[in-house]
Amino acid sequence: MNILTCKDLTKKYGRKTALDGANLTIESGHIVGLLGPNGSGKTTLIKLANGLLTPDNGSVEVCGMRPGRETHALVSYLPERAVLPLWMTAAQTVDFYADFYTDFSREAAQEMLAHLQIDPKQRIRQMSKGTREKVQLIMVMSRRAKLYLLDEPIGGVDPATRDYILNTIISHYNPEAAVLISTHLIADVEKILDDVLLIRQGQVVMQAPVDRIREEQGMSVDALFREVFKC
């Protein structure tokens, strides 16, 4: 079943066109990479899927519905930036998510916090950047959502944490859900992806399975990306 569909999705900021008729379909059970250079429209696309922006033209649908309150309950979103209130403790963050999302598993979150040795009584303000990102990820992955939107999940973290994050994504694999990972770090992430979406200047220029690209092009997606988006 189609978890995320975009049809001729267009969004403009003043004179600048961030998305120019983007088309894509993501089905359940797939882990998809959204790859593209800065300014290609990745973040805009994710914001539109979240209902944080309204399209100028075209449509975006999550499980067949326009983004809104119902889709928010189905989508687990990991933003690129730090968004957790600084005054909250890790435990209060768990409370927060448990309060608003019926698909949130308190036990899973607490287990992951313990596993990463994060003190539940520690305030977000007192945590290092890396730890904050881990907390955010834990909250997002502790939900049993239909669509996971991960915006640069492994961007600013060390390699060990990177492995942990990718592992967490694999271990939470759910054939009824879809995962969309927007990233620059293609080489690290390639192995866990089913398909990739290459986006350039607001348009989806390629949607293909990773293995097909490797077979047909004889190179990794990382290498293909470098070619397609050569400066």
């Binding site: 979240n50 209902g51 944080l52 309150r69 119902e70 928010h72 309950a73 989508v75 979103y77 933003p79 930036r81 730090a82 968004v83 957790l84 209130p85 608003f100 999302y101």
Partner: peptide, 17 residues
């Protein structure tokens, strides 16, 4: 702070009108 800045990414994606 809570609705229009960074925290807005958290709040405005809650299943809340």
């Amino acid at each position: 702070q809570n609705l229009l800045r960074d925290e807005g990414y958290l709040m405005m994606t809650l299943p809340v009108t």
